[in-house]
Write a protein that binds this DNA or RNA. Structure first.
Lengths: 299, 299
DNA sequence: TTGTGGCGATAATTTTTAGTTATGGCAAAT
DNA sequence: ATTTGCCATAACTAAAAATTATCGCCACAA
């Protein structure tokens, strides 16, 4: 016994509406025998007569009437599936899950979220801030659509796009303002305050100073750039922060900002997503928005 | 562009459950390429990617997840259609619309309804009592499944089954009890009370008396057998009623019952339905119940 | 009665769709 | 570098659904 098909249900609906095989077949754009056969098979599948045929009339049986009610709902639901798909096709709409590293998020998100919701009102933004390793894991698992991190990530499963480069700047106590800017190497002799293990920026900073991250250090780690800057203001030491954090973090702290001479330390910020992501196209558009938001912050 | 099919939705569901083409294909009892192709066509139909395929994983897209929810409901509804059909197959269940003529209904229905609901609890009985002409029309239009009427009806679109014959009896004032039973012909000279125009029993009675129904008569028509009997009790005249009505109608009236000698007047009661009725089989079973109920009344 | 016309069923055939097996390619793992 | 697992593609076969042609029934008219 063959299976129930949507086609049969559609033909059934046409016939129940027209109560005439010929006209129903026309409505379905098929020949009358094709309709007859499909209706017959439908009835055989169900083991129930749906229509009563007499020489003069075609009429739904009482079972057929009840059947028709349910079929109507089913066909409507099916058509809605297609509608739903079409609606979701509207570019840049629907849920978008972005992960951002902590040394970018506080400075980039305000303008980024504003820009995205303004230009793409259909977007349902979900933002998650955490360390790079977790972001990569979540993107891999499909729990995030994309992440904004420092490049390179070098995972072959990901597409990487570069967004912008940002320099590192030295934050010193206010009293040090105007003193010559030390080199990376000479930072090793100062009390350099860094983020906790796991932050990519910690490693980037250490690398600039040519320090092995394995070297044990006591009590000099902060959990955020903001904390580090406050510690500098309290005279505990000096720190490095990315350029983008400068306006926010130095606004209300008694510190001075020093920029390095070339070769200036810097990092590249980029966006990544799974190469297999179905919204790769949309993500590329999003990445342009992110770049603009970043450039604006850096200007 | 081809159409969405239930098959595709079923395959989609399997794949969304197994997240693996090979295993999902097994579950559907088809080969892996067949599944791949159908899923691909589904995605092309919708114009949306439902699954994200990477070398290691198959995963629903976020659209796919939403899609899956709806698909689940749709497939359940479709399966229910088949269930519904199967359930309706249980003989003698579901709605049954019976029409009955007024000169039978009050006497037959109590025992008939009791018997039917007792022996076939699945039945949803709808009973309508009206004149034969209306019953025939409603059966023809499919608004009734069957009707209990006096035969013959002689409509080629109907199946007729004879149920039982019932005699006509003469109802006279109590004072006439024991007097010789008059012949049909001699009734013409008495004040014969009859039902209104339209009742088949009126015509049957007139025919027994060899009276043309066209003959005008003044003020002697009653709207029910009960009224006629009451009128007889009041000394207004005599009347004929069918045998089946005797126990009920003469119980509390000051009248006498006289039965005719052969050839005794009688009529045949039967059941009719459209030859094309899908429940012809069930109706034949029902007709046996009706016959039994009738015989019981006549006993 | 005897056409006759409308209408649905059936038959024979073709076209379309779905499925099979065989094979390819790619990324991950050894 | 090679193997392995897994999905996609190709070529081909089987099954399903159309098409056209035709039949048969029944109501209605001549």
């Amino acid at each position: 016994m063959a299976n129930l098909t949507l086609r049969q249900l559609r033909y059934f609906q046409a016939l129940s509406r027209h109560a005439h095989f010929g006209r129903a077949a026309d409505a379905c754009a098929i020949s009358q025998p094709a309709l007859s056969v499909q209706i017959k098979e439908l009835e055989e599948n169900l083991g129930v007569q749906l229509f009563e045929r007499s020489a003069r009339h075609v009429r739904l049986t009482s079972f057929g009437e009840e059947f028709a009610l349910r079929v109507r709902d089913i066909l409507r639901s099916v058509d809605e599936l297609a509608d739903m798909a079409r609606a979701s096709q509207a570019e840049l709409a629907g849920r978008l899950r972005i992960g951002v590293i902590p040394t970018i998020a506080p400075y980039l998100l305000p303008s980024l979220v504003g820009a995205l919701t303004r230009t793409h009102p259909g977007l349902d933004l979900h933002i998650r801030e955490t360390l790079t390793s977790k972001l990569l894991e979540e993107v891999t698992e499909g729990r995030l659509d994309t992440a904004i991190v420092a490049l390179p990530v070098s995972e072959s499963a990901f597409t990487e796009v570069e967004l912008f480069a940002e320099d590192f700047v030295l934050i010193r106590p206010e009293a040090d303002a105007g003193k010559p800017t030390p080199s990376g190497e000479s930072l090793r002799k100062m009390r350099l305050l860094l983020l906790e293990e796991g932050h990519c920026f910690r490693d980037q900073a250490l690398s600039f100073c040519n320090i092995q991250s394995a070297v044990p250090r006591e009590g000099l780690d902060g959990s955020s750039l903001s904390t580090l800057v406050q510690m500098v203001g309290a005279g505990i030491g000096v720190t490095l922060i990315p350029e983008m954090a400068v306006p926010v973090e130095t606004r209300s702290a008694a510190v001075s900002v020093a920029r390095f001479d070339a070769p200036r330390p810097s990092r590249t910020i980029g966006m990544i997503w799974r190469k297999t992501s179905p919204i790769a196209g949309q993500l590329r558009v999003i990445s342009e928005c992110v770049r603009e938001a970043g450039m604006e912050q850096l200007a």
